[in-house]
Amino acid sequence: MTIDVGGTFFLRFGSISRKAVLAALVGVLLPAGGCTSTSTSNATPTAVTEGPKDTGSYPNLNIPPQVAAKQFTKEETAANLARLKAEQQAQAAKGGSVKAPANSAALKTLAKTHGDDTLKQIEGKCDPTLDPNCN
């Protein structure tokens, strides 16, 4: 008897359950149908077909930059690392502490005047004693 009641409730013409199932199917299948289109006109990426272009603006990221210097080989890298590690160990063997310079008065004077001298050079009012290339 329960099966008959459930069957008549669900299969009735205007039942709420039937409308809910129909709405759920339409709600799921309708949006999914819009995503199934295929187009071959835009299948290849533009970078593959056109290549780099000079747009006249800086920087042009389409053209790879030229290297400033040749890259180290693996042997050169290993040699430099070995040299640096040897220097590190030699420094650690000395005690590794930083000693104060012997002439601290000269360093204090330099610290007081260095900023002003640098500003004079930057502003074009350079001192020939500080910069021999000063005009």
Rank of each mutant, 00 (worst) to 15 (best):
K99E: 08
Q89K: 15
G124P: 02
P128D: 00
C134F: 00
H114T: 06
T2Y: 14
A111L: 06
L11R: 11
N62S: 14
V48E: 10
K94I: 12
K74L: 11
A93R: 09
V98H: 12
A47E: 01
P64C: 12
Q91M: 14
V28A: 04
N60P: 01
S17G: 11
S41F: 07
P45D: 07
A23W: 03
N62M: 13
P64G: 02
D127E: 02
G56F: 01
T118G: 03
T36S: 03
L11A: 11
S17C: 07
N133G: 06
P59Q: 07
G27I: 05
P45M: 08
P31S: 01
I63L: 09
D4E: 02
G14R: 11
T55A: 03
I63E: 04
A69Q: 14
L81P: 03
H114L: 12
L130A: 07
A90V: 05
T44P: 08
G96N: 07
T129L: 06
G115Q: 14
P128C: 00
L11Y: 06
Q71G: 06
A43E: 12
C134K: 00
R18K: 04
T40I: 09
L110N: 05
V21G: 01
L81G: 12
S104P: 01
K120Q: 07
Q66L: 14
K120N: 00
Q121V: 00
A47D: 02
K99F: 04
T49C: 03
K108Q: 10
T36R: 07
